[in-house]
Amino acid sequence: MESENQTNISEFLLLGLSEDPEFQPLFFGLFLSMYLTAVLGNLLIILAIIFDSHLHTPMYFFLSNLSFVDICFIMTTVPKILVNIQTQSKDISYIGCLTQMYFLMTFSGMDNFLLAVMAYDRFVAICHPLHYTIIMNPRLCGLLVLMSWVIMFLAPLLHTLLMMRLTFCIGTEIPHFFCELVLIIKIACSDILINSIVLYVAATLLAALPLSGILFSYSQIISSLMRISSAGGKYKAFSTCVSHLSVVFLFYGTGFGVYLSSALTHSSQRISIASVLYTVVTPMLNPFIYTLRNKDVMQALGRLLSRATSCP
């Protein structure tokens, strides 16, 4: 098969979830509704935290950043899916594909780091409550978020630059509905050894380290809770972690689901469906988890909506 250098490749073809035209209106409606729900839900949480002084604490500062990242995360993929379904087109430009891949890695990595930072916040709040305001000061909170952004802007840039050295065959098809790094590496027509090594090293460092931090934080939290004598005290302390734990299980559960689907099956459709849960459903459900399980957020949203409806 004739191959061309990446500078001459103008576009890739995204195969999507299904090529059956009968399913396209259904997919369009589902993706649009999930997209609007995710954006609106996360935006409401951000506004509630900004305008309610009761939520100006480290925990909600990190939550507002998580909501912002989730909005960016879902905006990276779904608008292109909707456009392709509406225009009955499958193509995505070479530059557009690399750009989408870069921001997908950036925002998924930010989710990873923010969940670890939020776990550390809960660890300090429960295990060192008397020193919480001293340790989790505004400077440290801002520094933790800033460091996460810097790392996740630079690490995907390395992958993107390495991708630009690969060559691709004419009419390259991506068996997915977005440009995912692993799949793009697999369909390259040149040697991918360096890309694969960097990919696995980066995945180990950028995914395993935050996950290890989350597991360590909760091991210390559980150990601290075991030393509390009253059942009421244990419940009150642990209740502040329920929302975060739910988001952690949802994020890593769907992420491992995508990984297992890729490892155990060669069906691109099953892998794509698993990826929908990770890239679309998770950002959509996070606002519901934090509002339904958090009295402070629900009250802040109520005050925000009351203020909005009372304005002339």
Rank of each mutant, 00 (worst) to 15 (best):
T133G: 11
T133I: 15
I135D: 00
I135S: 02
M136Y: 00
M136F: 00
M136E: 10
N137I: 00
N137E: 07
N137C: 08
R139H: 07
C141N: 09
G142N: 08
G142V: 07
V145E: 07
M147Y: 09
I151L: 02
I151C: 05
P156E: 04
L157F: 09
T160F: 00
M163P: 00
M163F: 14
L166N: 10
I170M: 09
G171D: 07
T172R: 03
I174F: 05
H176F: 13
F178A: 05
F178E: 02
L181N: 09
V182N: 08
V182T: 13
V182L: 11
V182K: 09
K186G: 09
K186C: 10
K186M: 11
I187R: 03
I187D: 04
D191F: 13
D191G: 13
I192L: 03
I194E: 14
I194P: 04
N195V: 10
I197R: 12
Y200N: 10
Y200Q: 04
V201H: 00
A202K: 07
A203I: 13
A203G: 14
L205Y: 02
L206E: 10
A207P: 06
P210Q: 05
P210I: 02
P210F: 03
S212G: 13
I214C: 08
I214Q: 08
L215M: 12
F216I: 12
S217Q: 07
Q220N: 14
Q220P: 08
I221C: 04
I221M: 02
I221Y: 05
I222D: 07
L225M: 14
I228E: 13
I228Q: 11
I228H: 01
S230L: 06
A231Y: 03
G233Y: 05
K234I: 08
Y235M: 14
A237S: 11
S239V: 06
C241N: 00
C241W: 00
V242Q: 03
S243E: 07
S243R: 03
